[in-house]
Structure formats: C-alpha cells, structure tokens
Computed example of a mutant assay.
Amino acid sequence: MDKIPRPRHEGRYPDRNIDCQEALDLAVRDLVDRAENAGWTASEAYRAIDVIIVAQRLAYDLDPDPAEDPA
C-alpha cells in the first residue's frame, strides 16, 4: 500500500474516527501480509503490532513532538 486515504472532511466531524480506522485498515493488513511473506505468522504480527502500538502511544503521550526537544 502506497498511500493512506485522507480524511473525508476538514476538521472534526462525527465519523472521523471510523474513517481513520477504515483508512488504516488496509495499511495494517498490508503490513501483516509483508510480515507473513518474511516468515512470521499473522498471529505473531498482530501481537507484535499490539505491543508496539501501546509503547508508541505511551511515548507520544509523554512527548508528542520529540523533534522540538533541545539537543
């Protein structure tokens, strides 16, 4: 998958979260397919994605834009 679809409307709107889920669904399926082609099982890939998502969400909540941090 090369491109994730943009939101259907500008700004916030009632189904924005659903639209985002639909937009990312194909990208996640593609990622799992690529993991399977590399030798992982779909179950392993989904479990790994679960762990990665939690870790990345926590890191984002602590520091949404690490590029702005002074070196």
Rank of each mutant, 00 (worst) to 15 (best):
D2Y: 03
K3F: 09
K3L: 01
K3N: 15
K3Y: 13
I4A: 02
I4L: 13
I4D: 06
I4T: 06
P5K: 06
R6P: 00
R6Y: 13
E10C: 13
G11K: 07
R12M: 10
R12I: 10
R12C: 11
Y13S: 08
Y13E: 09
P14Y: 03
P14R: 15
D15K: 15
D15C: 12
D15M: 12
D19S: 02
C20P: 12
C20Q: 11
Q21E: 11
Q21H: 04
L24S: 14
L24P: 00
D25P: 03
L26T: 04
A27H: 02
V28Q: 14
V28C: 10
R29W: 10
R29V: 10
D30M: 02
D30N: 06
D30L: 13
L31H: 14
L31K: 03
V32N: 13
V32H: 03
V32S: 04
R34I: 01
R34S: 08
E36S: 11
E36M: 04
E36I: 03
N37F: 07
N37D: 09
N37H: 10
A38D: 14
A38Y: 04
A38L: 07
W40P: 01
W40C: 02
W40N: 13
T41K: 04
A42M: 04
A42C: 08
A42F: 00
A42G: 05
S43L: 08
S43A: 08
S43Q: 06
A45Y: 04
Y46H: 10
Y46M: 09
Y46Q: 01
Y46A: 01
A48E: 07
I49E: 12
I49P: 05
D50T: 01
D50S: 12
V51H: 14
I52A: 07
I53P: 00
V54F: 06
A55R: 10
R57D: 02
L58G: 11
L58S: 06
L58N: 14
A59F: 08
A59K: 10
A59M: 03
A59V: 04
Y60G: 04
Y60V: 00
D61L: 02
D61F: 01
L62T: 10
L62D: 15
L62F: 06
D63H: 08
P64W: 00
P64T: 00
P64V: 00
P64I: 00
D65F: 13
A67S: 14
A67D: 10
A67P: 07
A71K: 11
A71C: 08
